[in-house]
Design a protein around this nucleic acid. Structure first.
Ligand SMILES: [Mn+2]
Ligand SMILES: [Mn+2]
Ligand SMILES: [Mn+2]
Ligand SMILES: [Mn+2]
Lengths: 260, 260
DNA sequence: GATAGAAGTTAGGCATGCCGAACTCCGAGA
DNA sequence: TCTCGGAGTTCGGCATGCCTAACTTCTATC
């Protein structure tokens, strides 16, 4: 029987460090990683040293840590796996978008590169997952849309839902019920003060023009939405393959086998 | 991040004990398990005690071990996962039959029951995998075809390929080239003595009647083939869902959720 | 029936990854 | 500048699962 070669701990740490580091601009605190992974800070200290020894993170004692280029590359590879798996489960196996995250969390450590390639082929090289999160390219570049929290929008502004936090399945189901999905057009009608509700006029994606309805979102729902000023373009906008204007590129492009 | 809940070691041991135990009729030796898993016999001794403590195997000190009903049920669940995953990789992701085994060996420990169900649905409830190995039913019964080693057939006898050992990818590719596949009809032309070659007349599955060719198999190739006297029936033969005459049923049928 | 060697077990260790408890650093406020 | 509390680290332990080496048991043969 083939041995699983358990790298799942390292892989999970890299993913968390990546996502906590504001896409690796900032240094990440020990405590934040511990909270996200649900482990103790002493465990994080130990792993930080191991990752530093392997050259995956830069770690200053009593300071935080930050991914090295090598660590970033591996983190992006895991993000790609996670999001491709989620997309596959939804599009090819009939999962709903609230069911995929936990399964993907396990599968991302188990799928071979062959399987990743086959899923990618079958899905037609998707560029984002069911929640709008961009899928890093095979050569390790993440196209980061210029999206900001819905909380930053004020009454009267029109936005497009770009990404939806997939942490809470119940919230995702509620969003589905209310027509809030990736690419939905939303106009902020009212923002009640002091953490009050936000009223939106929602045009679900693909709806006939003018088919809108109103939705009232609580703070938790608002926090789960990232919106962009301009809609996503189904086709790439330029030769870099960007689907959003003002898209940032994260990661050191890996030289593919062919180009070497 | 969800924790992987590493039960892969236990799962692999159960599978091996199952397959070595002639479908759990006999007691399995420590050394055989060690050889199959590529671990030392002392590791097997330790695991044997743990499995016995969990009630998954019956283990007599210095004697062999044998699966309990509970252990058999779990082993069959793993076999089902392995073979369904292989079938899925071939039919839905374009793997060839020599590529699937190693990937399935990892994935079988990672797929959720939801994913197993969805794959099963999408594949139309397959009853055997790409190598002809029967897939245990969801309620834990394995329909074991009455197949015997090709080595037991003598010149002049006609057989149908029922199962092909998937251990050696190179051998599988060679079989594919020579038209030997599950459901192929073979007539033994000659058996050379002293471990010599076996000459077969092969009718590949689905070939027009009379389209045959000759193949000469070495001992290793012969050992990889299980053949049956009568062809498999694509549709179930009876209300038990058997696809072969003389099919044996292994495993204690689990009462499904609905029937309880 | 004795006995050597094979088969199985136990003991002691290593590696990973986690924990709580105790210690150390560091910087913000007095 | 001093200090104190929170963040970070180290330490000893636990659990898995594997190993080698030494030991025990079983049995096949004489
Ligand atoms: Mn996810
Ligand atoms: Mn996602
Ligand atoms: Mn297999
Ligand atoms: Mn297998």
């Amino acid at each position: 029987m083939a041995k699983p070669e358990n790298r799942t701990a390292v892989e999970d740490y890299l993913k968390v460090i990546f996502s906590l580091g504001e896409w690796q601009e900032e240094t990440v605190s020990n405590a934040a990683v511990a909270a996200r992974l649900g482990v103790s800070t002493s465990s994080v200290s130990e792993m930080a040293r191991k990752l530093a020894d392997s050259g995956l993170v830069a770690h200053k004692r009593y300071g935080g840590m930050r991914l090295t280029d090598e660590g970033l590359e591996q983190a992006l590879r895991m993000v790609r796996r996670h999001r491709l798996v989620e997309t596959f489960l939804v599009r090819s196996l009939g999962y709903s978008w609230d069911e995929v995250h936990d399964d993907a969390e396990v599968l991302e450590h188990a799928v071979s590169t062959l399987m990743v390639d086959r899923m990618d082929d079958q899905l037609g090289r998707p560029w984002r997952d069911p929640h709008g999160d961009p899928i890093p390219t095979p050569d390790g570049v993440l196209h980061q849309p210029a999206a900001e929290p819905l909380a930053a929008s004020t009454a009267g502004e029109r936005r497009f839902v770009a990404r939806i936090d997939d942490d809470d399945p119940a919230l995702l189901r509620w969003f589905a019920d209310t027509g809030i999905a990736v690419d939905a057009e939303v106009v902020v009608r009212e923002r009640k003060p002091f953490g009050g509700a936000t009223r939106l006029e929602v045009t679900p994606p693909g709806a006939a023009a003018g088919v809108t309805h109103e939705v009232e979102l609580g703070a938790q729902a608002v926090a789960a939405l990232l919106v962009s000023l301009e809609p996503a373009s189904p086709d790439p906008l330029n030769d870099k393959g960007c689907h959003y204007v003002g898209c940032r590129h994260i990661g050191v492009p890996r030289v593919s086998e062919k180009n070497r």
